[in-house]
Each structure stands twice: as C-alpha cells, then as structure tokens.
Amino acid sequence: MRLSALPLLLAACFSIAFAKVDPEAAPQHYNYRDASKQMKRIYYGDLQETLYCGCKYMDKKHIDFSSCDFKPRYNPKRKSNKRAESIEWEHIVTAHNMGHFLPCWQEGGRKNCSANDTTFKIMEGDLHNLYPAIGEVNGDRSNFMYSQWTNDPEPMYGGCKTIVDFKLKKAQPREEARGIIARASFYMEKTYGVKLSNQDRKLFEAWDKMYPVTEKECERDRRIFKVQGDHNPFVYEKCPH
C-alpha cells in the first residue's frame, strides 16, 4: 500500500485544528482528537445510530440496546465490559491501514504518527472515514479487513448482524453498513492514496451496487461538508441536489 503525492498537497492546503475548537469556525480538516469534538454537529436526529449494529444512542455513554436487540459478547475471562456501554468513533479504513507503512509508524506506531506526522493527522481525523460504533464491536473489529463469507451469520451480539472471525482476522458488517463502508474506502483511496487490494476493490464495487446511497448517507455527507468543507464524491454524486 503506497501513498501518492496528494497527501503532501493536502497537508499544505488544509488547516488542522490543534488548539481549542470553535464549533462555529469555518470548515476545515481536523486531527482525530478535534474531529471527535465535531461529531455532535453531524450525528444527531435520525443519524444518531451506530454503524455495525444500528443502535440508537443518546450520547457516548447511553446506548439504547433495545433499539437494535444488542447484547454484549459473552467472555468468561472478562469481569466487566465497559466498552459495550460506550460509543467510539470507528475508522472505517483503519488507522493501521492508513499509516503502518509510514516512517512515523515504523518509528513509534500510531501514537508517534498522531503526534508528529501532518499527513497522518489529516487522514486520522477525516470525518468521512469516522462513524459511531459500540466500543466492544469497534474493539473486536480491531484492524481486521472487511469480508463476506456467510449469508446466515451466527449472532455474536444479540440481534446485531455484524460478526467477527477472530481466527481468520476478518469482519463481516451488517448489510446496512456495507455500501457506507465501500464508499468511504473509495474516498480514502481517491483522497489520500490508501490503495485497495484487488480483492477488496471487487468486494466494495459489489457492495456499492448492491447497497446504494440512502437519504441518511446523503444527509451525513451534507453535514460533513458544512463542518469539513468537502464531499465524498462517491456519495455526493448519487444524492439529489
């Protein structure tokens, strides 16, 4: 996976918020920490729903499990499961896939890249690639690539249709998330040069066709434009204007 020269141009052109965030500031790109402060400007009303399980939530600490029949995954070695009770901002294209080949990652991993690499900061905080997820499911997905291997998934999280194969290190998202994932992945490739494998490209092209853009996805793109100042063209071009 290689980055094109485009990120360097983006790094020079985009303003990144490192100081205190003004919620009324002009559109701009943020680092991950400050991007997380913008989420309430995007995810409210009908969009206040998790990616992998479709659960409604009131805020980061209050998720309505009854709205999606979610149940935390049983693990006898785990005394408590606080991550199942909180919302986290999931990278659809993972931080590892964005940065593991960068010098900053090789010298100190994600923490080093987040602190010292301008290009990585822009990628890590890009709102088009961030989506609310239940912390447990986000953690289980880890750095695994997306896949599709069964039409009859055995539930892992109650009624949630997303499943994870820990042995093969892959995650199968529920159908409602697949088109979103495909179009976010296309955006990250086009914008930052984060290349897709041939296998992933074929899968995402299929998902893009099978699960077309919805009005919710269009509204999310419109809200991100107001905050960040750009559209995901793989969504925007399919939305009514």
Rank of each mutant, 00 (worst) to 15 (best):
Y30R: 10
L196M: 15
Y236S: 05
H128V: 11
H29A: 05
L9V: 10
E124P: 13
L168Q: 07
F166C: 02
T119R: 04
K77V: 09
G99P: 06
Y192L: 15
P72Y: 02
M58P: 00
A133D: 00
N112Q: 04
A25I: 11
M98R: 10
A17I: 05
E217A: 03
E136P: 00
F65T: 01
Q172M: 03
A5N: 11
V93I: 10
D221T: 06
L8C: 05
V93E: 04
K167Y: 11
H231A: 10
Y52L: 09
S185F: 06
M156V: 12
S86F: 01
Y44S: 00
A12H: 08
S86M: 05
E237Q: 15
F225D: 07
A11R: 09
R220S: 01
G135I: 00
S66R: 04
P212A: 10
W207P: 04
G99M: 11
G45A: 12
W89F: 12
K121H: 15
R223C: 11
E124W: 02
V194Q: 03
S15Q: 15
E107C: 11
I134H: 02
I122W: 05
Y30D: 03
D69Q: 14
P212W: 14
S66K: 05
D152K: 14
L47S: 03
S36Y: 04
C104N: 14
D69H: 02
E154W: 06
E90Y: 00
N198Y: 07
M188P: 03
N129G: 13
M188T: 13
L127Q: 01
E49G: 03
N97W: 08
K111F: 05
N75T: 13
R41D: 03
E205W: 06
D152L: 15
E136T: 02
G45C: 15
K60G: 05
Y187I: 01
F144Y: 07
S66A: 15
A25F: 14
R220W: 04
R33N: 14
I42E: 00
N151V: 08
R178W: 04
K161L: 10
C13N: 02
G229L: 01
E217S: 04
E215N: 13
S147Q: 02
R223L: 14
C13G: 14
Y44R: 02
T50F: 00
I181R: 07
S142F: 03
P212V: 03
A26V: 09
K111T: 12
M98K: 08
H29Q: 15
L10K: 15
E217M: 11
A115K: 09
N97V: 10
F204I: 02
P155H: 10
K79V: 06
F65Y: 07
I163C: 05
S80Y: 14
E88Y: 04
P7W: 11
I180C: 00
R223S: 03
G229K: 09
G108V: 11
P155Q: 12
K195F: 10
K169I: 08
E237H: 13
N198S: 10
R178V: 00
Q199T: 15
R222C: 09
S66P: 01
V213S: 03
P132V: 03
